[in-house]
Design a protein around this nucleic acid. Structure first.
Lengths: 124, 124
DNA sequence: CCTCGATATGTTCAAAAAAACATATCGACT
DNA sequence: AGTCGATATGTTTTTTTGAACATATCGAGG
């Protein structure tokens, strides 16, 4: 699963809140997928990630953050599933906002670097 | 070699120019170390990195960027050494500037996230 | 009480990354 | 010609990471 090169030049933005909690692109995508699909396994599959890995990431997120970001249920009519808590949604939204702001803030420098290293503007 | 948690909350800023060239915190620190010490091995040692690893990173930087960022010499009176090219210095400077700008741009959201997850302001 | 799909977790294997170790080379200077 | 310190590379070992596989569990509903 290779992440495509963003035209913006911003590859990773990892926001580290302390030594056991951070949000990066992968975690954000996973949260987004869970929100969209209502399931850890479906979200994982959508990004070509094993269920175990996806579940482990959710664990890390829930334990790392003070509050749970993802709530899960097993069995029942819906046969189980997962969804974001309000905190989870806010963290995701803020991360996306930060990505945008950071992109905008560094855009001029990225352009300058592209020119400096004589690189054609990327196709994507 | 663990990177300390920055009080700003910005852990990683990786600027990807294309699939074989990017700059992140590690590479920037290495460039800075080379600039300061005049040697790949000294710079590597300063960040608890093996010479081989440091040298490999320099290779990746020089090959990935269109132009060489680090120039090296062997033997001679100074017994060899390394220094940044003008391009190398500019890339480093711009990366640092981008870090600052990104930090500033996301600072309010970082604060909000800290509050949201009820985290004491970090000591560092 | 058995089914079903998704969560929950352990175990084992393979691939990738980094560390560790080992040489070889350059070249002004003595 | 031999020294010295830093670059330049190759080889081997260890560590880390992720994939793969295997089970166990939950719980409304048929």
């Amino acid at each position: 699963m290779k992440r495509p090169v963003p035209a913006s030049g911003l590859g990773h933005l990892r926001v580290v809140l302390d030594e056991n909690f951070y949000i990066g692109p992968g975690r954000a995508d996973l949260l987004e997928g869970i929100e969209k699909t209502g399931s850890i396994s479906a979200a994982g599959k959508a990004m070509a990630m094993s269920y175990k890995r996806a579940w482990s990431l959710v664990q890390a997120l829930n334990e790392g953050a003070g509050a749970p970001l993802v709530e899960t249920s097993r069995g029942g009519t819906a046969q189980g599933g997962a969804h974001l808590t309000a905190t989870g949604r806010e963290i995701l939204a803020r991360y996306r906002a930060m990505e945008q702001k950071a992109r905008a803030a560094i855009a001029p420098d990225v352009e300058a670097l592209r020119a400096l290293t004589k690189r054609p503007p990327p196709k994507t």
